[in-house]
Nucleic acid binder design. Sequence first.
DNA 1: GTACGGCGTGAAGAACGCGTCAAGATCACC
DNA 2: GGTGATCTTGACGCGTTCTTCACGCCGTAC
Lengths: 227, 227
Amino acid sequence: MSRILLVDDDTQLLRALRINLSARGYDVLTAADGGTALTLAARTPPDLVIIDLGLPDLDGVTVVEGLRGWTRTPIIVLSAREAEAAKVAALDAGADDYVTKPFGMDELLARVRAALRRATAHDAGPAALTTRDFTVDLAARRVTTAAGAEIRLTPTEWHLLEILARHPGKLVGHRHLLHEVWGPAYDTETNYLRVHFANLRRKLEPDSAAPRYIRTEPGLGYRLTPD
Amino acid sequence: MSRILLVDDDTQLLRALRINLSARGYDVLTAADGGTALTLAARTPPDLVIIDLGLPDLDGVTVVEGLRGWTRTPIIVLSAREAEAAKVAALDAGADDYVTKPFGMDELLARVRAALRRATAHDAGPAALTTRDFTVDLAARRVTTAAGAEIRLTPTEWHLLEILARHPGKLVGHRHLLHEVWGPAYDTETNYLRVHFANLRRKLEPDSAAPRYIRTEPGLGYRLTPD
DNA sequence: GTACGGCGTGAAGAACGCGTCAAGATCACC
DNA sequence: GGTGATCTTGACGCGTTCTTCACGCCGTAC
């Protein structure tokens, strides 16, 4: 799991945080002042740093700058200071987030999750919808077969598929589809939907006569079922 | 500069934010409800989203989930709700930050800077893109053949190629390309794209009649496929 | 049984987007 | 002030895509 470096001279708070973070499965390192924080971070690089602004030796902002000199590890700053200038200074020094004391533990944990998610999202796959027979890559705007071959779609076909793919499993009404693709003036042209979905099925469905993914809800609309 | 999508039904606040952000050189889009926010974001992808939780049509968290279905654009949530549960829900839905109203403008701007800084440092991507026939060196602004000979590109050609190379494999829309190279006033001049991409293909593609790397997606845009 | 509405097909012409070429216009550089 | 490169603009042919219509099928209602 992720390693978190905790920097604070308030032993009470340090203890509380350590317990809560450890309980969530995080690997926790602690430092009571800025100097040891910097050397510790250099020796065993953490995945995230939580740092209090009020340290005995260095200013918290200085520590943030020190870290930012060589790493982009997420940094969450804790502080009792409400002053806006302090927040701006810390954020501009390179901090990712600024939490004012007193804070709720759940909130801090959520912010920790958000920061870590961002940092690791790097390696995560692209936003896509996958079925047994094809993959809809929404980010790249591309559809590929399970084997990896590209499926060519016309603009209208893609547009329709995109709308369904953004609401997987959900029913999308005729009006919504027509509105989105053709505009408000085409609310009644359900003909268009039939023609284009027929073409889509021919390209995507293994057996377009018995659609498995692009389902018709008679009188209502269409639905894309991932599996 | 960066494009920011602002979602709020409070016209007062919307106006204040728009003015402040525009003054900092950001390109600001606005939406008054969740539905238009989602379609707007899909049509012209923003670099950052600021969204109020209390919207007339959809719950803010729903909008965050809708965006996270296909993009990792930073999202800053605004809300009058102090409740910790609301913060946790929004952050876990994929939001990057949560700011409680009333907030200081300077703080929000600092958080915007922090979010954008992260995202662009992140997106920097690879410094070069290599195919079997040529190499695009983004750092050196140079294109060379596989043999190492330099390929001379005009400024416009380079600009177009650079945009494609920064999003390898992804479809880049007409509007995005025109916006980036010629500015907002040239949204409909797809003619330019055809001419310049034809020239690019003549210089890069082994057989410009059957393009292998610079692919056309009719009606949508272009795509650079490394192999 | 029959009429009807909704759906899926197929095929036609119209409309559109694309690549190409070539001729000015513009710009940078000498 | 001239020269070459680059960008803009318009026109053309071609292939693709969209629209439109007609037809057959299948349920349900009567």
